[in-house]
Design a protein around this nucleic acid. Structure first.
Lengths: 412, 412
DNA sequence: ACGCCTTACTTCAAGACGTGATTCAAGCGA
DNA sequence: TCGCTTGAATCACGTCTTGAAGTAAGGCGT
């Protein structure tokens, strides 16, 4: 008895209207200014319905007219577009070393940002909540956006987010175990909240505006100090049964291999994570790891590879492992696109991509490999907040341009 | 620009009715006889709508009344159920050694079956098409089902099925490369056809009637001579971009490990597939593999493990590898259930399950592992045809009890 | 300047649907 | 036989989409 009956709203004739509003609105959001006529063709609705729905959306201020296009010998068509100023959203990146808050307009153009550095390992829940709240207030002031024009706040956090009636955050690195960040922030900001794994939000940013545009089945593979992935299946992010999907880094690629910080042996992360790569180099040259900035160390290693054979060998091995890992993704998920990102991924990517592709070709089944492209992220690792801001927008679009009830505002 | 506008039908007010018919029908199909009253509660529809919809479905003969239940002191409630005799479906298992055709009633009770042995390696497309057609004709005769009462034919084939406007079958083992089996069988049977990977159809059988009942996110891991998996995400089978999802067997678990028949090194299949297990034993004892029945050989090996340390070691290693493979599934997909099947999986399973669980616990992230159960299939490896028969039924349910237009019958 | 043509958009009447309230049906107990 | 309770059908109402008919807005030829 699968296929749960799923109370997927659409039951009454009004839900139908909501769905059609969403149809029109979403198409307009992603496919730019369009006339009512084109919209009818694209959405499959009749012109009459498009006119009705568009009229409503114009009245609500969600859409705006965007100029005329002359049609040869007839009445010019009026272009419609989503009004960027209709509402704003906030995106937050709760990272291991900083808290970044950004405010965007409805089309996700950035209006303001604020960063707080965080002493590593010192992210108490309380601190994070205070910083987010403060950052949000400051960003709203800087951008001149009134609080009640904000659709919602998306937050990308490190670690696993268990979605549910009360979403809980579990993060090894910060020692959070079942933190109801959602509730805490909703209380302190008074805005609708969306919390998700930072890897997932970054993945969403790539899907909307980066290398994932237009793809329906994709995996965004993120290589930083650790390694993770964001899985997109049938056009929507896939989180698994309890939010833990995409833990690519702790996938075993070498039985009895190197010990990973998670305690297991042979995890991909132990080979291709920045820490793993540096460790392997230090072992190769017999040197003790110097405690400096990991990013700088990795950059040095890449530079060194031009002249030093041992460094080159470590990087080649990294590409081989990453390629095998990518092949595993391709074999189990058969995506049309694998997108490699994360600061280390981008740092290494330029140089390693051919090697990764070759190794993936070797380990993946031919047909699935051929159908998948392997590329680098286009947006850089700073887009966690942008991706987080995507979440309230997605909800807004799915609701047909109707705002979610906020935490404090009454639902009525 | 993800989230394609997706012409997901529901646009007009009639689509709404169709969706609500599907809602009621599906609930009734999986949750047994229910009264209109209970149905209203479960589907979220008003009693009036349930009455209307149920009335239509009764008129169409899809539903039937199934007795009364006395309600204390009031009018007894009439139970409704899907009429098993309303229609029939066929399921076909195109295996490497046989072609099995079965006919079921609408509730998937088997009415008739026919098997044809196939000389290994001799499955020409032509032969398969002839056998399926003949088997179907015979089964229909045996069960007394008229051809036009058959909703459709589901076919499970070995290898990859690329869904699309014209589904194509690619199978290494039979040498099929882009065979339009769908079209060929539709032409020769004159019935609506559904072709899918046998692993997927078997997975569907487990999801509907076996160990997967009630799960929303699951993986059915199949271990035979080769190794595959069927991925169920959000309640529906996930096929990836081109039907290649779930190729678990060719996932790398040991870089530079054993050579797999796919040509790559370190594939899971080379360790836990029946052939791989037997090879490893033969290498361990230094014996040349005797060419006998693989199933018998594996059974012997399991028996031998009671007394022979080397056999035991091979099986323990198998459990370790399988556990790592399962852990990889858990880490990437975070299912709530991993179900192990396939003839070798079931043969080894009883003995190896504790070892597999232990190894999976070691290699999977704790939280995801805790949320996942690891169990054996309940239906046995013969349920490929049953699962295949599931496909036309699923379509029928999704359409709200309206039959698909057949290949030959006119669409109008 | 005028009329005509083309194209874009809006209005309108018809058909269809779900819902809540109301009415009908069916059994039970006194 | 008469309430009483509960299940199921009917009805009026509001809402929705749609195709067709009507209206707006511009170009072009005379």
């Amino acid at each position: 008895m699968p296929l749960r009956t799923g109370h997927g709203s659409r039951r009454t004739v009004r839900d139908l209207r909501a769905a059609n509003r969403a149809r029109v609105l979403r198409h307009l959001y992603f496919h730019g200014p369009l006339s009512r006529h084109e919209l009818a063709g694209a959405t499959g609705l009749s012109q009459a319905s498009v006119s009705n729905v568009a009229g409503e959306l114009l009245d609500d201020g969600v859409l705006a007219e965007a100029g005329l296009v002359e049609s040869d010998g007839g009445r010019p068509r009026v272009l419609l577009r989503v009004d960027p100023g209709h509402a704003a959203v906030a995106g937050v990146d709760v990272g291991e070393t900083h808290v970044l808050v950004e405010v965007f307009d409805l089309t996700l153009t950035r209006l303001a940002m604020t960063t707080f550095p965080v002493e590593p390992g010192a992210q108490s829940v309380d601190t994070v909540v205070r910083r987010v709240t403060a950052g949000l207030t400051r960003c709203l002031a800087d951008s001149g956006v009134e609080r009640d024009r904000v659709l919602g706040v998306g937050v990308g956090v490190p670690g696993l987010v268990e979605q549910g009636p009360e979403p809980l955050v579990h993060a090894q690195t910060t020692g959070w175990d079942g933190v109801p960040l959602h509730r805490l922030l909703a209380a302190s900001t008074g805005l609708p909240l969306h919390v998700d794994n930072g890897a997932n939000t970054l993945g969403q940013a790539e899907m909307w505006f980066g290398a994932g545009r237009g793809a329906r089945d994709a995996v965004i593979a993120l290589i930083g100090s650790g390694v993770g992935a964001s899985v997109v299946a049938d056009g929507t992010p896939y989180r698994g049964a309890s939010g833990g999907a995409g833990e690519w880094g702790h996938t075993t690629i070498a039985l009895d291999g190197r010990t990973c910080r998670c305690g297991a042996r042979g995890c991909l992360e132990a080979y291709v994570g920045a820490a793993g790569v540096l460790d392997r180099y230090h072992e190769a040259v017999g040197a003790r790891p110097v405690e400096v900035d990991q990013e700088r160390a990795l950059r040095d290693l890449v530079a060194l590879a031009d002249t030093d054979a041992r460094a080159r060998a470590v990087l080649e091995e990294t590409a081989r492992c990453a390629g095998a890992g990518v092949a595993n993704l391709i074999n189990t998920l058969n995506p049309e696109r694998v997108i490699i990102g994360g600061w280390a991924g981008l740092l290494l990517g330029e140089r390693l991509l051919p090697g990764i592709r070759a190794a993936a070709a070797e380990h993946a089944l031919r047909r699935s490999f051929q159908r998948a492209s392997i590329d680098l992220c286009e947006l850089g690792p700073e887009s966690v907040a942008l991706g987080a801001a995507t979440l309230p927008v997605a909800e807004f679009l799915a609701a047909g341009g109707v705002r979610a009830a906020s935490a404090t505002r009454s639902t009525g």
